[in-house]
Simulated assay, not measured.
Amino acid sequence: MKTVALVMIVKNEEKHLARCLRSVHKIVDDIVIVDTGSTDGTKSIAYSFGAKVFDFEWANDFSAARNYALMQSTCDWNLVLDADEYIVNDCKSIIRHFIETNERAIGRIKMVNEFIQNGERRYAQSYLSRLLPKGVTYVGKVHEQVDSPFPRQNIDVEVYHDGYVHTNKTERNLDLLLQELQQHPTDDYVLYQVGKQYKLLQQFNMAEKYFEESYRLVPLYASYRHSLVVDYLYTIIANRSFERGLQVIAAEQGRLDDSSDFHFACGLFYMDAIFYHMNQYVHLFPMIEKSFIRCLQIGETDQYDRVRGTGSFLAAYNLGVFYETTGQMERAIHFYEQSAHEGYEKASERLKTLKQ
């Protein structure tokens, strides 16, 4: 029978580590934890779960630390998690079946990232390569990537990550990415990640600059291209670069017609363009309705990385706003009710106001 180890790198993670290890220790055969300089109780928690703990001197390179951790594993397969991530579904048999029936493949788990947007809790989900056969390693100083030609396969392992809510590592990540960009100035993926960090810092002019360059270089087949386009559009909205936005939408609407996140961003783009430049962009008004209706037609799928709700309650709520604004109250209430039924609190609050 093949074996699987949990492989982690940690530093000062006493607040999160036990939760992670509780979620996974009965699934794996071994736990390998590499500590990069903790000064709290991280190591003690690791030992309490029977982990093998190793020290590694931090060198501003996540791949170097991860690869060292992978070298310490003696198992056939390695499941890579971070301390602020934890498994939420019953997936032991799924992982076991995957490692027994595959040799030269990479397992992609569903990662659900919790974040705050406009004061609301949101959840973005993506599939990440985290179940690796022995010998597979990483490249990249930060936002490291699996370095392997093996095919990727999505598996039903769901992991939650709330690190974006509780900690802010953006400036650290940005420093490392800019160092990497000095060595690889035309790396479209690194350019994209730099843009993302500036977007998180709400430095939208800088974000747009790096997204633009990444967009110019990115291959059509790149796995992250969809996320780049969506992030680029949101940055364009923030900067009110509406003419550029129209160019990007025109170029991508055929390729991304099956993406609810793309059409959701388009709907918000049209709303903002009309709000700020009514005379210039009023002809786009019908596109608001079409965009959010298309979101609902697509629904919540795993075709792309996405924010939960863009194919359901968030799109329905925005249709409610559109119809309320245009005086179509029966339609507005219908879509507010649909959104509220799916658990969106803002829709419930709007319905209470309208029915008073």
Rank of each mutant, 00 (worst) to 15 (best):
Y317M: 12
I293N: 10
M278A: 14
M271R: 07
V230Y: 01
R225K: 09
G320N: 01
Q297E: 15
M287T: 07
R255Y: 02
A315N: 04
R308N: 13
P286N: 02
T301P: 06
C295A: 01
N279Y: 11
Q247A: 06
Q247K: 10
S227Q: 15
N318D: 07
G299D: 15
N279R: 12
V282G: 02
T235P: 03
G309H: 08
T325R: 05
R308D: 13
Q253F: 09
C295H: 00
M287K: 15
Q297P: 05
Y276P: 04
E324Y: 11
S291D: 12
G299P: 13
S260Q: 04
F275D: 13
A238K: 13
N318F: 01
Y276E: 08
G267S: 14
A251G: 03
I249A: 00
Y270E: 05
T325N: 11
P286S: 06
R255T: 06
A315I: 10
R306N: 12
A238L: 10
M271A: 13
D302V: 13
I288V: 10
S260N: 08
A251D: 09
A265P: 01
L228I: 00
T325C: 01
G245M: 05
R225V: 09
D305T: 14
L314P: 13
E289R: 11
S241I: 09
Y234F: 10
Q280M: 13
H226R: 07
R244H: 09
L246T: 03
Y232G: 08
R225L: 07
K290P: 06
I237M: 07
S241L: 07
Y276L: 05
F242L: 13
C295I: 03
I298Y: 06
G320W: 02
T326C: 02
D272T: 13
L256P: 02
N239M: 11
A250L: 01
E252P: 10
A315H: 04
E289C: 06
L233E: 00
Y281C: 01
E300C: 09
T310R: 02
F313N: 14
F313I: 15
F292L: 10
N279D: 14
L268M: 01
Y317P: 12
G267P: 12
A238Y: 08
S260K: 05
D302G: 09
D302S: 11
R306H: 14
D257F: 14
Y304H: 13
I293C: 07
I237T: 09
Y323C: 12
L314H: 12
Y276M: 02
D258M: 12
L314C: 12
H226E: 10
Q247E: 10
Y281M: 03
A273N: 01
T235R: 00
I236K: 04
Q280H: 14
H226T: 09
T310S: 11
F292H: 08
E252H: 04
R240Y: 15
L268T: 12
S291K: 06
S312C: 09
G311E: 03
A265Q: 03
I236D: 06
V248S: 00
